[in-house]
Computed example of a mutant assay.
Amino acid sequence: MSDASLSRTTNDFLTESTIKWSKRLLSCGIIAGPLYIILGLIQMNIRDGFDIRRHALSLLSNGNLGWIQISNFILSGLLILACAFGIRKVMYSGRGRTWGPLLVGVYGLGVIAGGLFIADPALGFPPGTPEGPPVTVSWHGSFHFILGGLGFFSLIAACFVFARRFFSLGQQGWAVYSIITGGLFLAAFIGIASGTSNEGINVAFGVAVVLGWLWISL
């Protein structure tokens, strides 16, 4: 999506300097997804007791190595914010000019909030944590859930906003891809937010998060 934001038509109306800076900002969005996913995969393999079938990546912010995931959240979120500014620079007109970059930016803020407000230990992770959900939810755990949820909804909405823009530009493939990504992410988020905990829903949500990051990068 970051690559597609800078079209030939747009280039005709932008100065060379603006185009250069826009490409740099959009490149931040291209980098963000692979960075987040790769660091997540590494942690899955080095953190004792972590099981993606049971645990959300947010739980990796706890424990002695929790700083890795905290840094992952903050750095990836900052890259998305930069990308949102880049999108705004090149979307000089047309559908989604206001809401598209704004929603991507809100998602970036939600990702940063995920690092600033740590999720409560749960489900036996980190090792030594009682099984099951937290008995009491901390203030930072509440903010993590609320702001993270806002970020997820913003990304889902962004998928549909850009789908409409791509349809208006005649870019049918990008439009359909955006709709599929937004729809799958929405279904997975509803499943995980319902409080139903099973391996299928947890894995589906993890896959949806990866799809969302890839959508931004592509």
Rank of each mutant, 00 (worst) to 15 (best):
G124F: 06
A84N: 14
E16Q: 07
D120L: 11
T181L: 04
G94T: 09
W67Q: 02
P126K: 07
V161Q: 09
I70V: 14
G173L: 07
G108S: 08
G141E: 07
Y92G: 01
V104D: 07
F167Q: 04
L155V: 06
D3L: 06
E199D: 14
A119I: 15
L103T: 12
G105M: 06
L184W: 11
A82L: 04
S27F: 06
L65Q: 06
A82G: 12
Q171P: 00
S168G: 03
G49A: 02
R164T: 13
I156C: 12
A119M: 13
P101N: 15
G170K: 02
C159N: 12
G124T: 06
I52G: 02
W139F: 13
G33E: 01
A193C: 09
S58V: 07
P130L: 11
G173F: 09
Y36R: 04
P133T: 09
Q69G: 00
G170V: 00
D48A: 05
D120P: 10
T18F: 00
L169R: 07
G40H: 02
L211A: 14
G183E: 03
L184N: 05
H144D: 12
P133D: 07
G128C: 09
S71L: 12
I37P: 02
K20S: 08
A56L: 15
N72E: 00
I112Y: 00
L81C: 15
